[in-house]
């Protein structure tokens, strides 16, 4: 049975300065009426949590070489077995992230759901990206972490940095804050006000796409022996 390589947790140190700067309100220029703490909480929960999860899980689950004969003799397809073998790791990452998100919400005065929804959506994408990188692409730890990180960055970062893609953002609030020029109200209030939605097409669509990709990677090819690569298994 493969186990999670705890050395992968060292990758979290890379995000520590960002966590400190963002969640302390020392960085960022929020739109008027929005505090740096609120903006930082969205960066932490919408960006940092999914990206860190993708890198750590991909690195940690790809790091234990297994004799190919053992892999071939195992009762289930390794693409399915990944979820079972690392179930506790995935659950721990989820619990850790949700607790961190609630902590951020309590101190930034942001509604918890406004942070939980993007965090959970991003985590689903991160888990799926790591699973495909490790079991379908059979990448070794470093490339697997980079690939999972890059794939997860696409849905969580790109729509926030590209106003034209704002509709696809996992975190609609963050995308709105980042897309609007300073001085422009992010939302009108009062009679006839339109509140920002916490759930956009991106919060649902990207996780669905990610799960579909996992299913496709399980079905094609149907036989695991047809998957190329995996040279690091022989190390």
């Amino acid at each position: 049975m493969r186990t999670f390589d705890r050395r992968a947790l060292a990758l979290l140190l890379a995000g520590a300065p960002l966590l400190l700067a963002w969640s302390s309100g020392y960085y960022g220029q929020p739109p008027p009426g929005v505090t740096r703490l609120a903006l930082g909480a969205h960066w932490v929960c919408g960006w940092l949590i999914p990206l860190s999860a993708a890198a750590v899980l991909a690195y940690g689950t790809a790091a234990r070489p297994v004799d190919p004969r053992v892999t071939a003799a195992a009762p289930r397809d390794p693409r399915e077995r990944w979820w079972l073998e690392h179930g506790l790791t995935l659950a721990s990452a989820t619990v850790f992230s949700l607790a961190l998100t609630l902590g951020q919400a309590s101190r930034s005065a942001e509604p918890p759901l406004a942070l939980l929804i993007p965090a959970v959506s991003g985590l689903v994408v991160a888990f799926c990206a790591a699973q495909i990188a490790v079991t379908r692409l059979r990448l070794s730890p470093g490339p697997a972490a980079f690939a999972a990180l890059a794939v997860t960055a696409l849905p969580v970062l790109a729509p926030c940095l590209t106003p034209a893609l704002r509709w696809a953002a996992v975190d609609p609030t963050l995308a709105a804050w980042m897309a609007l020029a300073p001085g422009t109200p992010p939302y009108p209030i009062g009679p006839g006000a339109v509140e920002l939605g916490m759930v956009g097409p991106g919060a649902v669509g990207w996780p669905v796409l990610a799960v579909a990709a996992v299913v496709a990677a399980r079905l094609l090819p149907p036989d695991v022996s047809a998957i190329p690569g995996g040279a690091h298994d022989l190390d």
Partner: peptide
């Protein structure tokens, strides 16, 4: 997670 989520904001300019 709760500690990490809350701790940095002890330094916050809140």
């Amino acid at each position: 997670g709760a500690l990490v989520g809350l701790a940095p904001q002890a330094f916050a300019k809140a």
